[in-house]
Simulated scan of single mutants.
Amino acid sequence: MTATPAAPGLTWLNSAPESDVRAALHAVCAASAWSGAVLAGRPYAAPAELIAASDSAMAELTAGDLDEAMAGHPPIGRPRPGDPASAREQRGMAGASEQLKEEMLELNLAYQERFGHVFLICATGLSGEQMRDAARERIANSPQKEREIVRAELTKINRIRLTGLADEAPHEP
């Protein structure tokens, strides 16, 4: 049996200069404590090790670290211009009706007023209606319960983004 060659992105992540890897990890998750922990775990023998390190780092984030991570995410329905990751992840809102987009905007504002941060959900594969329904349901949560849901959603987002990074090395500027 022959060994499977490492994914090009994982090879890059293991060998690129720390500053380049830190920048790529920041695009995955804006929490510096998370990227520092993932960076410190290099080299990774397999993508599963990278994902496990990410999950472990997410579990250790403080409330302030979670705030930093959430600050890196735009509101649902309003991906940042020029940010292909958030546009791809929020694709379910792209074809939404104007009524649904308006409702999502109102829910985003009410959620942010209640919790002090953006409504965060792993939107990959969800329809606009599913995101709206989740926002409606979650706005009734206690701040403590919502904080742990946000941690779980960030963990899912990081897994998806890290899998993409491990599969393909970042393009040089």
Rank of each mutant, 00 (worst) to 15 (best):
A3I: 15
A6Q: 11
A7T: 04
L10T: 00
T11W: 10
T11M: 15
W12D: 10
L13P: 12
N14V: 02
P17C: 12
D20Q: 12
V21E: 11
A23F: 06
V28E: 09
A31C: 10
A31G: 09
A33G: 13
A33Q: 15
S35W: 01
S35Q: 04
G36S: 13
V38T: 06
A40T: 01
A40W: 02
R42T: 00
R42E: 06
P43A: 04
Y44N: 00
A45I: 00
A48W: 00
I51E: 04
S54D: 01
S54A: 13
A57V: 01
A57P: 07
M58G: 00
M58Y: 03
A59M: 06
A59Q: 07
E60F: 09
L61W: 03
T62S: 15
A63T: 15
A63M: 08
G64D: 15
L66E: 12
D67M: 10
E68L: 09
E68K: 03
A69E: 06
M70D: 08
A71N: 15
G72D: 13
G72H: 13
H73P: 12
R78D: 12
P79E: 14
R80Q: 14
P81D: 14
S86R: 03
A87C: 12
A87S: 15
Q90G: 13
R91H: 10
G92P: 15
M93Y: 02
A94W: 07
G95L: 14
Q99I: 07
L100H: 03
E102V: 00
M104V: 14
E106I: 02
N108G: 13
L109I: 04
A110R: 14
A110F: 05
Y111H: 09
Y111T: 11
E113M: 05
F115C: 11
F115Y: 06
G116P: 12
H117N: 08
L120G: 11
I121Y: 01
I121W: 02
I121Q: 07
L126C: 05
S127W: 05
G128N: 05
E129F: 05
M131W: 01
A135Y: 07
R136N: 05
R136C: 09
R136T: 04
R138H: 11
S142D: 14
S142E: 11
P143E: 08
Q144I: 00
Q144S: 15
E148G: 02
I149W: 11
V150Y: 05
V150I: 11
E153T: 05
E153W: 03
E153I: 02
T155Q: 10
T155K: 05
K156I: 04
I157H: 11
N158Y: 04
R159N: 08
L162H: 01
T163S: 14
G164C: 02
A166F: 08
P170S: 10
E172F: 06
